[in-house]
């Protein structure tokens, strides 16, 4: 269940709800456990996804305080696709009712390759379909109330949604400008903070900086720390400079460049408001930037 949301009603627990991992079959081949990357996919392929969901219905009714056992529920799977943290397009929806006598659901969904792009997004939810005849104040009762959910995103092509990084020839990339001699270059634009983070930013490593590339491939701690801190501080410094108030910042939707910058700021200064970070950047820019060097030591970008 999504712990980011404080649901205003009771939800299902792991005790009542048992869900298998997704199994995937490509072009009618044997099904195997789905991982975060599906190799060998192309637009001519057909993917079939399988999953078992078992809800202990008497226990579920107790958990939800639906004393008469007549709360209507269904398992619903939304198949989406497209790069980014949320799917750009809904491809298919599969919905099956749970009944008092049958809490076992077998999901099998066939997805034609021509509908898919970059990522296959599988969002599973157990929802209310009809309210109970007798309920407490915190019993879920409105159709659509979400009782359980999980999401799996499977990359089917390319590098996204991992942080986009590429080793390249900087003379070809940038031409004859001073930046072409730098060991790395973050390609991004602050013009649109609503843009999807993964589409808005790309880190290039200079092919001539062999030592840097070697250290990067070996995941050398200080090297990664310097790179990640540079990314975070570049984005956050401009983000703070571009915004005036907390309200504008809160409006950025999850997965956008603006939301990512906000998350980094909150991780650097938990509990502090935007006015504080703005003041810090203006008055103590060294401290502002060093905070990202510290943050980068123990974490990965994305």
């Amino acid at each position: 269940m999504n712990r980011r949301i404080a649901f205003p009603y009771l939800t299902l627990s792991e005790a009542s709800t048992t869900v298998s991992c997704w199994q995937v079959s490509l072009n009618g081949g044997p099904s195997v456990p789905a991982e975060d990357y599906l190799p060998h996919w192309d637009a001519a392929s057909t993917i079939t996804m399988y999953r078992h969901i078992r809800v202990d219905m008497p226990l579920a009714m107790t958990e939800l305080s639906a004393d008469n056992g007549d709360l209507g529920m269904a398992v619903r799977v939304q198949i989406g696709t497209g790069a980014g943290r949320l799917p750009q397009q809904l491809v298919k929806v599969d919905s099956q009712d749970l009944t008092a006598s049958n809490g076992n659901i077998h999901v099998a969904i066939e997805i034609p390759g021509e509908c898919l792009s970059t990522v296959l997004d599988l969002f599973t939810e157990i929802i209310v379909t009809s309210g109970p005849s007798n309920a407490s104040l915190i019993t879920p009762s409105s159709p659509g109330d979400r009782l359980w959910q999980d999401r799996l995103r499977i990359r089917i092509e390319g590098v996204e949604p991992r942080f986009p990084i590429e080793v390249t020839d900087f003379q070809r990339l940038l031409g004859h400008i001073p930046a072409a001699e730098s060991p790395w270059y973050l390609h991004w634009s602050p013009q649109d903070w609503s843009r999807d983070f993964h589409g808005a930013i790309r880190l290039f490593l200079n092919r001539n900086s062999e030592q840097l590339i070697e250290r990067f491939e070996q995941q050398d701690g200080p090297t990664l720390q310097a790179l990640l801190a540079d990314i975070m501080s570049q984005v956050c410094e401009r983000f703070v400079a571009d915004h005036d108030d907390q309200g504008a910042i809160d409006a950025y939707e999850s997965g956008t460049l603006g939301a990512q910058a906000t998350a980094w700021l909150q991780q650097s200064w938990p509990g502090r408001d935007f006015g504080f970070t703005r003041s810090l950047l203006q008055n103590r820019p060294g401290e502002f930037r060093s905070a990202f060097l510290a943050l980068a030591e123990t974490r990965e970008v994305t």
Binding site: I5, P8, G144, R146, A251
Partner: peptide, 15 residues
Amino acid sequence: LRIRILNEARSLSSL
């Protein structure tokens, strides 16, 4: 804005 917030807890497209 309000529909987006509501959609976090409630599967509106299932209605």
